[in-house]
Design a binder for these strands. Structure first.
Lengths: 340, 340
DNA sequence: AGAAAATACGCAAACGTTTTCGATTTTATA
DNA sequence: TATAAAATCGAAAACGTTTGCGTATTTTCT
């Protein structure tokens, strides 16, 4: 009932062979225009819809792309998926979306679910806990097109999309320094992930350039839990080596900083200037408004999708090239980094 | 290559019939423990993964649930999906996620894609433009389990999950009045959707209860575009009938109100108090912090998923009962509604 | 007019599972 | 010991498509 009428039944209704009906529906040159019209109208009348699984089984492709992200409640990732969906939908692809919640074990489970061909390709951003990557290697070895964005996995030879993390963090840190920061801190979720390294490198470069000696205590690794992050940051802000600026490599750490500063009664931007990677639309409505480094999330999604669609739809396409595509981020200066 | 080894090949390797191997893998009582062990270890060794499409074709179910939401960049919907995923993943289900972007035409297209059995069930929240619902009826008539949350469709006899919209809006409006509002406004995306009506009803009831005569000009229908919304609200805030309070039935309208008030130099909460439906984690960090009505998004997702899983996994389950499940929302009072 | 080519369609296999129905062997029962 | 019952496995059909190949009819060319 729920699956509706089949091709065979449709063919029987028309007194035609299933093969003929199939060809007619697929607009084959072997079928006369008249027969095509007959088939089409009967298919419409009987509400025929081809079974996607029979087709997938036969064609060995699913018209489905899997997207794996570390968190759903995050403007950046949501925008990327919007971008992916926009392009892939035009080509009749469906999106399976999985969230790892920054948990590498969950990531492994999800990845293993995709070893059976359920998806024709994978677009993903690895969890912040991901250091061992043999589960990802297994996917790639199987021949499944896989493609990374933002949190990339450089060991796997495929196309990756990131932003100019080093350069933009360099500029952002320069901005902090220019606004008067003498001892900025760098906040991160993990030391392992690719972009964190790049961003940290840019941060340190700007300090060196300005002749500021960086105290490693001011490069802080935080965790997933919001309340413990706030505690970590309260300790940082009231510790022996107080930062007068913060560069948060992840949005949630900027927000935790706001909370911590609020609790410790530290004034932003007077006592503490904050700049953060963030794609929140409402950064301008925060108290004070947050200076952000925003990534071209939607474009990243679209570009991912485009290259994937090309690979999947054109026959005899080569493997995805092992290259890193860089799209520029943008700094929007707001109140949180204003010099007094 | 990408699809790996098949059951037949595995069987050949073991000198067993495919049927035996299938049964062994599915832990059938008909197979001896010894054979099972042999099969399992060989399957492991050869990296066998059952083809999901062959199975779906045979079993006539896909182990897939489709989720349709009006927007992705929205904490509420993201949380609901997190809740759904949490439960469904435990039972081996996959999630196809579609976004309508509040566009009813896109909604229709997406729905028509699901007429072929690609998903075993649908969980959705309709777009704000959806008034004609025959595309949804078609799904339900086909026998596909469909289930609504938040933006429900009452014409279709199935289970729906909402919050106590009438009651909580009544209380929220009382709060506004108690804080000194004499002429609160009500902001909505559309007059058509279910929850808007309920919320508006609660709003009006509170006004009546307080003996306040409501000017219909203060019930404002906004649109999807942020900048035009800001214009609409600037007009409202500077018009002949000025509101001194706002109840935003949707998060984005509260944010637009903040922007409009900022531009018009209207002080919140002194000149204008704002309360809004919102699940943003950072409502407390806005300037001023936003009083919110937050919905139990994650629970909604989990409850949806639970009832669905029950329906899908237990045999001979009756249709989803035609009832509305109500989960309570919660008001969190912050600075945006403080009396001076 | 006859041969060749083009047109339009049908038959059957194949994709990788699961399951019904038997078949054979082993074990338990009388 | 004969027989019923249980245990273990295999053959084959079925799910709904697509497609290679075969064939009958019509058209075109010489």
């Amino acid at each position: 009932m729920v699956s509706g009428i089949s091709l065979k039944e449709l063919a029987a209704e028309l007194n035609l062979a299933p093969s003929t009906v199939s060809r007619a529906l697929n607009d084959s040159y072997e079928i006369s225009a008249e027969t095509k019209k007959r088939v089409l109208s009967m298919a419409e009348k009987l509400n025929y819809h081809p079974n996607p699984f029979a087709r997938s089984l036969r064609e060995n492709k699913s018209k489905t792309i899997a997207v794996i992200i570390p968190e759903r409640i995050n403007t950046f990732f949501a925008q990327v998926i919007d971008g992916i969906e926009k392009i892939t939908q035009e080509h009749g692809y469906h999106l399976l979306v999985y969230c790892t919640h920054e948990d590498v074990d969950k990531e492994k489970k999800i990845v293993s679910l995709l070893l059976n061909g359920r998806a024709d390709a994978i677009v993903m951003s690895v969890s912040s806990q991901t250091s061992d990557i043999c589960h990802l290697k297994k996917l790639h070895d199987r021949g499944l097109p896989i493609l990374f964005f933002d949190r990339i996995c450089s060991e796997i030879p495929t196309t990756k999309f990131i932003t100019n993390d080093y350069q933009i963090t360099l500029e952002a840190t320069r901005h902090l320094i220019h606004q008067g920061c003498k001892a900025p801190a760098f906040l991160m979720l993990s030391e392992d992930i690719s972009i964190t390294k790049e961003r940290h490198r840019g941060f340190l470069a700007a300090l060196k350039e300005a002749g500021i000696e960086h105290n490693p205590m001011l490069s802080k690794v935080c965790c997933q839990n919001e309340s413990t992050n706030i505690e970590i940051l309260r300790d940082l802000l009231t510790g022996s080596i107080k930062p007068d600026g913060i560069l948060a490599s992840v949005e949630k750490l900027a927000l935790a900083s706001y909370q911590a500063a609020k609790k410790e009664n530290i004034k932003i931007p007077q006592d503490l200037k904050i700049i953060s990677f963030s794609n929140m639309g409402i950064a301008g409505l925060l108290n004070p408004s947050l200076t952000t480094i925003s990534q071209p999330a939607c474009s990243i999604g679209e570009e991912c999708a485009k290259i994937l669609i090309k690979k999947l739809t054109k026959p005899n396409q080569p493997d995805l090239p092992n290259e890193v595509v860089v799209l520029p981020s943008k700094i929007t200066i707001r109140a949180s980094t204003m010099a007094e």
